[in-house]
Amino acid sequence: MDIAMGQNDLTNINNVVYQKLIDNITTLWGEAKSKAITAVNTELLDANWQTGKYIVEYELKGKDRAEYGKQLLVNLAKDLTARNGKGFSRSNLVYMRKFYLAFPICETVSHKLTWSHYFELLKCDNTLEMQFYYTESIKECWKVRELKRQMKSCLFQRLALSTDKAGVLALANEGHQVQTPQDIIRDPFVLEFAGLPKQKRYKESDLEKALKDHMEQFLLEMGRGFAFVGRQYSMQIGSRQFKVDLVFYHCILKCYVLIDLKRAEIKHGDIGQMNLYLNYFKTEVCQPDDNPPIGIVLGARKDELLMEYALEGITNQLFVARYQLYLPKREELQAQLDKLLDEAEQQQ
């Protein structure tokens, strides 16, 4: 009996030690793989940048640079592929060249991003837009698919249209700064990921459920700092019960954010209802170290003049904004932004 107990104890000790051995080796190889991936990415970026530099410097020696450069890339793609295998298509060489031209100083290339990030960034039409997505990708640790989505949703243009020329330049150089309640508002919010067809009739509860089911994408659209608290948050006020569609806590602004969804046009009564919710939260929910809550009434349409009168005199942080269930047309937003910048230039 004692011998059996002794063997069991030894087995248990051996199992603990053995599991520790497995854990140590697993951790070792996990860290090694991570370091290897980082090293490979660094070398790949440096090689792509250097290739672009070689191409540009060689082109400068040509006489008819436009035609010369075009034929050069065709010849390079063929000859480099024959000698080195895949990875040297004309398209790749074009982007390596653009990579060097966009980042002529090697030290400005951040190794926190991958070549796939830069490949998407180089599709931007202007420097301000590319600089914004470059900065935000680093700050927010966007994956490539997240970067592509933000670019498709024209995040830069949507944010830039809500500011002036100085704000556009700051947006490009510093990324999106969240310092005031106004900084979390987009107009419109783009909710294409909800999967509700543009023409299909849907209920507000359908939209609410779709946002809850796609919370990761919704948080990406909302921007940094949001933490989901709950859906259909219940409030008992007197003998009546009220529910707000979505509640978040903003970790940067240190306050609750309440969102009420409206399938159609926002009505003036919706403003009063949200104001009621905000007053309740200030008194019953917020802690002493919380800032006043923010309310957003989110609808498919809004009448600007009606909303101006409805919001007059309200001291709470209450905003109205539109949403759309499809990606915006980039050309239209860019045209509006170009007009804004041109008007700012003329006023100087």
Rank of each mutant, 00 (worst) to 15 (best):
M1N: 05
M5Q: 14
N8S: 11
N8I: 15
N14Y: 10
N15W: 12
V16Y: 08
L21F: 11
I25C: 12
W29M: 12
I37Y: 06
A39C: 13
T42M: 14
D46E: 13
A47E: 14
A47P: 10
A47G: 05
N48C: 12
T51P: 09
Y54W: 10
Y58T: 09
L60M: 10
K61A: 01
G62K: 02
D64N: 14
Y68A: 10
K70E: 09
Q71K: 09
L73P: 00
N75A: 14
N75R: 08
D79C: 15
T81G: 11
G85I: 11
K86I: 08
G87V: 02
S89C: 06
S89D: 02
R90F: 07
S91T: 14
Y95K: 11
Y95Q: 07
M96C: 15
M96R: 00
Y100P: 01
L101G: 08
F103A: 09
P104E: 01
C106V: 07
T114E: 14
S116E: 07
F119V: 06
E120M: 06
L121T: 03
D125V: 05
T127N: 12
T127V: 13
T127A: 14
E129H: 06
E129T: 06
Q131A: 03
S137N: 05
C141W: 06
C141T: 09
W142M: 00
R145K: 14
L147H: 03
Q150P: 00
M151C: 08
S153M: 04
L159E: 00
L161M: 13
L169W: 03
A172G: 03
G175W: 02
Q177T: 12
P181T: 05
R186H: 13
F189N: 07
V190Y: 03
L191H: 07
E192G: 05
L196V: 06
K200H: 10
R201C: 10
E204Y: 04
E208W: 04
A210P: 09
H214R: 13
M215I: 15
Q217A: 08
Q217W: 07
F218Q: 01
L220H: 00
E221M: 03
F226R: 02
R231F: 14
Q232W: 09
G238R: 15
F242C: 04
V244H: 04
D245C: 04
C251M: 11
C251Y: 06
C251E: 14
V257S: 05
L258T: 02
L261C: 04
L261H: 02
K262L: 08
I271Q: 00
I271L: 02
G272K: 06
F281N: 03
K282D: 08
C286L: 01
Q287L: 08
P288L: 04
D290W: 08
P293L: 13
I294K: 00
G299D: 00
D303W: 02
L306P: 01
Y309P: 06
G313S: 08
G313Y: 09
G313N: 12
F319C: 04
R322P: 01
Y326C: 11
Q336G: 05
L340N: 01
Q346L: 01
Q347T: 10
Q348P: 07
